[in-house]
Design a protein around this nucleic acid. Structure first.
Lengths: 226, 226
DNA sequence: GTCTATATACCGATAGAC
DNA sequence: GTCTATCGGTATATAGAC
């Protein structure tokens, strides 16, 4: 059918998916190659044959995700006119990347915690490009007067931090909920798209220039769809 | 001088401090007991004698930090009148806890990434109390009309996420800066107190009820002190 | 209380048969 | 391409001498 297999039948694809989940759950050092091979239903020697050693495995997963995010950000923001549109598209695309690659947010949180200790240089360079995409939108808004003068680095970390923690916080929130009562429904339990909207709403409120009347700024309504 | 040693001469104290740094840098699985003992200048057998095994070590560090945070939050918010004061005090105290225990933010980020997989139940219960402190301030503001109706869970994760990532993001920001030019100064490079103010400013902007005139909301000025 | 030596287990990686 | 068997290294934890 095809020269290169991309479906779930492809052993390499299965290995990468299983490994991504393992790295997300246990970190680079905590993930076990034996366990990854077992869960991917391949012999350990085949894992090394098809992908490479543990470092290559990790780097491949991160690069794959980040390249996907960058391509989608470029596509999504190509037609953006205003800075607000550009910022919303960029953040929504990052959130959607986290939805399509469920390991993305945990891996990024771990890299933040370690200061990027296990990040290969090539991955670090592409991550910087993702960061730059957010800052570009912020700086465009500041230049055009759409946003008030803003600290682009701090604002970017603000967006990235709240987004990543909201996206990755599901499991720990559920564990806490078991200890408490609180069966409440929260935006935090909704889809990545709704979470992205929530983050953008709050941040854009803070970015609004002093002169602009409040009523002109729309607030994204939450849709029922997951 | 004292019955229980608390200074840096206390081997137990040294072990806990070194271990905290190791867990923050490499995670629970990645941290090495041998290395912790070596850096704390104690024999490995003494580490087990004075503290216990790796699990006890980890739980002790987390509990110590969280109990400290809870006690300080209670003290700081005791005299709070308005919800804004209460929220600012709580967030500032959490940030100050992160300053005094530099391992705090990385450890929390790792636990978020793993969904609390390595979190002992006792630690989880106390963490819930920290979360509750933030939500209490938010709900007080909503009840009194000081804040607009707000999603307390999502808003809390929003605050916690941006705060933790801003606090823990220093090293990775420096590594990215080596790849780029951008020698700019950012709020993100300032003290935990300034970072806490920044987060509160943005969030309070989003919490302001529709009717309140914008000029009435103060924005905390950044102080030079670290 | 302190240290050496070691038990026990496991992990990443590969050699080599098929 | 696939698998078994295993090497070499290292991890946590403790026993036991002092």
């Amino acid at each position: 059918m095809a020269r290169t297999q991309k479906s779930a039948d492809d052993p390499r694809r299965r290995i990468l998916d299983v490994a991504a989940a393992a790295f997300a759950a246990s970190g680079f050092e905590g993930a076990r190659v034996d366990q990854i091979a077992k869960r991917a239903a391949v012999n350990k020697a085949m894992l090394y044959y098809h992908v490479g050693d543990k470092d290559v495995l990790y780097e491949t997963i991160l690069l794959e995700t980040i390249e996907d995010a960058l391509a989608r950000i470029a596509a999504a923001t190509a037609s953006s006119k205003t800075a607000e549109d550009r910022l919303r598209s960029t953040v929504a695309t990052i959130a959607d990347t986290a939805r399509r690659h469920s390991h993305f947010a945990p891996l990024m949180l771990r890299e933040l915690a370690s200061g990027g200790a296990t990040l290969p240089d090539r991955v670090m360079q592409r991550m910087r490009d993702v960061f730059q995409a957010v800052r570009d939108a912020l700086e465009q808004g500041t230049r055009s007067g759409e946003f008030r003068a803003v600290d682009p680095v701090a604002t970017h970390m603000f967006i990235a931090g709240s987004l990543l923690v909201l996206l990755a916080g599901g499991p720990i929130r559920r564990r806490i909920r078991q200890l408490t009562d609180v069966p409440k429904v929260s935006v935090a339990d909704r889809s990545p798209a709704d979470i992205a909207s929530f983050v953008c709403d709050v941040v854009l409120e803070g970015l609004r220039p002093p002169a602009a009347p409040r009523a002109l700024r729309r607030r994204t309504p939450l849709k029922k769809k997951n």
